[in-house]
């Protein structure tokens, strides 16, 4: 009897070992990649944040040297007395509010329309997704000339001044563009989640006298809540990296009055990609912003979980 049990254990452990070896082989490359390009990169970022780039006068070679909290002091000075950072923060906030308030709301309603297979819903689905497949430069160039050349030609009151050329309307025009091209993935995911809803629930609600608006808020929205939370969390994280397509519009020469955090950081990294001199300051930005972003994102998720109709 004992012999049989031992044999069984041996057999089990052998098969378990085979499973383990298979799993480890499958995840080996992604794990090494994660170790280098996520953990390694972030540790390197942390180290760089406390360094400065100096040229050795004797060898004329650039070196990274420990500089304490100098980079963090620079950021503090830029925040208190500078012009770019506060402006970038404000613009990023405006963009975030518009994307969440207007963009997400419209995406949810559009998805509902597609899910319910209303008039021309298939055509609208294709049209809504179309900007997502085109290169950003194509839509940016088309939009830029349309709002700056074609639109002033339609309205005499504009005196030939384009919406992007006019400083008063530029920000709104850029935000509108960011919203205009943002529906593709959201529509795909939201309508996909809606398709999983049991039709009998909707029919029962309809029999109970539920109108379309009530149906959306009391049934559909509650049932797609987990997908909504996923998008809200990624939106939160995007606050710090969204470039508002400024690099595609203006390359590295966007007016500082309209820049966002994401654009500012990308432009500075790109500008110092040859000399590497600014990398430590940018790494310090990375640390500071990550420290701000992490609790906000986690807090948002926790809050949405509490507010939600069920645990997600």
């Amino acid at each position: 009897m004992d012999h049989i049990t031992l044999n069984k254990q041996k057999k089990f452990s052998k098969s378990r070992m085979r499973s383990l070896i298979f799993c480890l082989c499958v995840i080996a490359v992604p794990t090494v990649q994660f170790g280098i390009f996520y953990i390694g990169v972030n540790i390197n970022s942390l180290i760089m944040a406390f360094q400065s780039y100096e040229i050795d006068p004797q060898t004329n070679i650039g070196l990274y040297a420990f500089s304490g909290f100098d980079n963090f002091k620079t950021i503090w000075t830029e925040l208190r007395y500078g012009n770019e950072l506060p402006t970038a923060l404000r613009n990023s906030f405006v963009l975030f509010l518009c994307k969440v308030g207007v963009g997400t709301t419209l995406a949810l309603f559009f998805s509902l329309y597609i899910f319910k297979k209303k008039f021309l819903s298939k055509t609208f689905r294709v049209i809504l997704f179309a900007p997502s497949i085109l290169p950003a430069i194509v839509t940016v160039t088309m939009y830029r000339y349309f709002v700056d050349v074609a639109v002033p030609g339609m309205f005499v009151k504009m005196n030939g001044m384009g919406l992007l050329s006019n400083f008063d309307t530029r920000m709104a025009t850029l935000v509108f563009y960011a919203l205009w091209i943002s529906f593709g993935t959201q529509i795909l995911m939201y309508s996909g989640s809606m398709n999983a809803i049991d039709i009998s629930i909707m029919e029962a609600a309809k029999l109970d006298g539920c109108n379309a608006f009530q149906e959306f808020f009391h049934i559909v929205f509650k049932l797609i809540w987990p997908t909504f939370v996923t998008f809200m969390v990624t939106n939160m994280a995007a606050f710090f990296i969204d470039q508002m397509n400024l690099f595609s519009f203006y390359a590295a020469t966007a007016d500082t009055r309209y820049i966002t955090l994401g654009y500012m950081l990308f432009r500075d990294t790109r500008n110092s990609n040859v000399t590497l001199a600014e990398f430590p300051r940018l790494a310090a930005y990375s640390i500071v912003l990550t420290c701000i972003a992490a609790p906000i994102t986690i807090g948002t998720r926790k809050l949405l979980e509490k507010l939600g109709p069920r645990s997600v």
């Binding site: 280098i36 390009f37 996520y38 390694g40 990169v41 972030n42 390197n44 970022s45 760089m48 996923t230 969390v233 990624t234 994280a237 710090f240 990296i241 950081l265 990308f266 990294t269 110092s272 990609n273 590497l276 600014e278 990398f279 940018l282 790494a283 930005y285 990375s286 912003l289 990550t290 972003a293 992490a294 994102t297 986690i298 998720r301």
Partner: peptide
């Protein structure tokens, strides 16, 4: 990784 965004890791990635 999804909910904890690492902001601007680009300089470090380039150096790496």
């Amino acid at each position: 990784q999804m909910i904890l965004p690492i902001v601007n890791a680009l300089p470090s990635e380039l150096k790496m």
